[in-house]
Design a protein around this nucleic acid. Sequence first.
DNA 1: CTGAAAGCGCTAACAT
DNA 2: ATGTTAGCGCTTTCAG
Lengths: 328, 328
Amino acid sequence: MAREVGVSRTLVSFAFRNAPGVSEETRHAILEAARRLGYRPNRIAADLARKRAATVGLYLLDLHNEVYADIFAGVREALEGSGVRVILSVGDVRRRGGAEPGDEVESLLEARVGVIIAATLTGPDASLREAAAAVPLVSVARRIEGVDSIYSDDAAGARAATGHLLDLGHTRIVHLTGPRWEGHTERQRAYREAMHDAGLPPRVVAAPEFTFEAAQAAAARILEGPDRPTAVFAHNDQMALGVREAAEALGLRVPEDLSVVGYDDSRIARLAGIRLTSVDLDAHALGSAAGAAALARLADPSGPAVDRCSAPRLVVRTSTAPPPQPRR
Amino acid sequence: MAREVGVSRTLVSFAFRNAPGVSEETRHAILEAARRLGYRPNRIAADLARKRAATVGLYLLDLHNEVYADIFAGVREALEGSGVRVILSVGDVRRRGGAEPGDEVESLLEARVGVIIAATLTGPDASLREAAAAVPLVSVARRIEGVDSIYSDDAAGARAATGHLLDLGHTRIVHLTGPRWEGHTERQRAYREAMHDAGLPPRVVAAPEFTFEAAQAAAARILEGPDRPTAVFAHNDQMALGVREAAEALGLRVPEDLSVVGYDDSRIARLAGIRLTSVDLDAHALGSAAGAAALARLADPSGPAVDRCSAPRLVVRTSTAPPPQPRR
DNA sequence: CTGAAAGCGCTAACAT
DNA sequence: ATGTTAGCGCTTTCAG
């Protein structure tokens, strides 16, 4: 302890938080001594003593998906200067199909964070509610009844995507999605609806994971199979990229032979050589709204749940075009 | 407290760590009661009491760069089942040029992690040594004298990359790098050396950040300027992508008009439509080696420093070709 | 096998 | 403006 400065521990504590009640002189002396002694306050102990953690736990599904980096950036921006720090926990999409946030969220709970921001939490609502019982939860990109939810209108996004393909004249459009988790079905539902409204048969293919690799494998099967679609609407950009890859491997050109649309509009979608038509949900904004909600929740644990739905935007690039051999 | 089960707190503690000395029956009763009461052990308090954190702090420079996701995956894999958890802290490349790991590492220190794994730590060695004084440090992708270092032979990688371009017949090759930080100069040095050996003038351009955006801007200037190079060797894939983007904007084709080589061989480099020639440093392996080193350090704080250098591998794809108008 | 007591490094009243 | 005294929720000797 740096109580060798001649002052009490209280003063040191006050000095470090530059709380009022410490003369400028003393504070200076304390900080100076601390530096000299290599002393650093122990936040762990501080949080424990304070019985309330100025920490938000951020659960990210998959670091390999750039969307989560955007969400993180947004959260950080919102928390900047608030003195609240964030501890991250990342999921493992590849493990047992990526279901159940399990351990990851559990570890946040054990670390006694004051609030958890969960980005695209997987698994059934039940396990979430359980977590939410222990600590306030802010759900990003997924609406959960009774829980702070910051999300984008998935139905509108999927409708725009499907509509775009329909407008181009496509009739054999498949929707490539992942495991059937709650809270991830809106896009699929809207797709089915749009197809139905157009008098076309929907065709949904579920890959075992929401990843590039899984999508690539599933797409290879679809494209080699009978009745090849002329367009694929993928659940996210990573999966859309997997579709492109499979198409390329089979000698199919995008968009001449196959149109592909993604979801997220991550930066990779915008790259030269990719130019993927995608639905932009502004992950950064989602993240900062979630950060703000988390701060509010920390301040008032019992306030009404936030329910913030934003409108996504379809960004048309060159991965979509009219189907090959238009009826003639 | 779940001391309502009729046993003492000691027992509860033991039961949860399934330490020996608790009858199977009691343990079961305790766990059951805990579940019923929604009790969860507080790791914060536990770490504090134990005076030794079973936690590694992982510092990642930039979530937008997929390499860090790979490193993370490697670290996690190495830590799996060890009971050691990891808390992440991510840098902010975009802030004030991305220098100084500052706050991020500081926050790890304050959280009293048992060891810090720093992936591509930026800033001068001095600030690192300071951190290393407080807690053991494992440096990934950067060699630091006297500190556990797990890295790839950058000089060899850069030599291979430059050599490849030279072999193709290029003579005007620029190396695009970022701010001049210690520990990031090997690639540049090897490039200069290779050029020199070939009797060609080196030309190094430093962008203000190691990012896509910064590279794009810098590349635009280079490509529009006089004496346009026929090849660019970028410090990493993100930057190489920025170069491609700038080239495309100017109507230059890759590789016909401009060859581009990156570094890291992140997945994005392999994508259809990109196919970037790049140097693979196997970030996943680097990560898991770092995780193992961290574990060893936790077990024996005073063992000799690990110094593990691996050999990178040049992966040639279609972003490189002979220069336009070969001498004729 | 089980329990009592001390203490980890801090914060938060409550004095002085 | 500064010092005192209790804990925070756990782990850890050390005794029953």
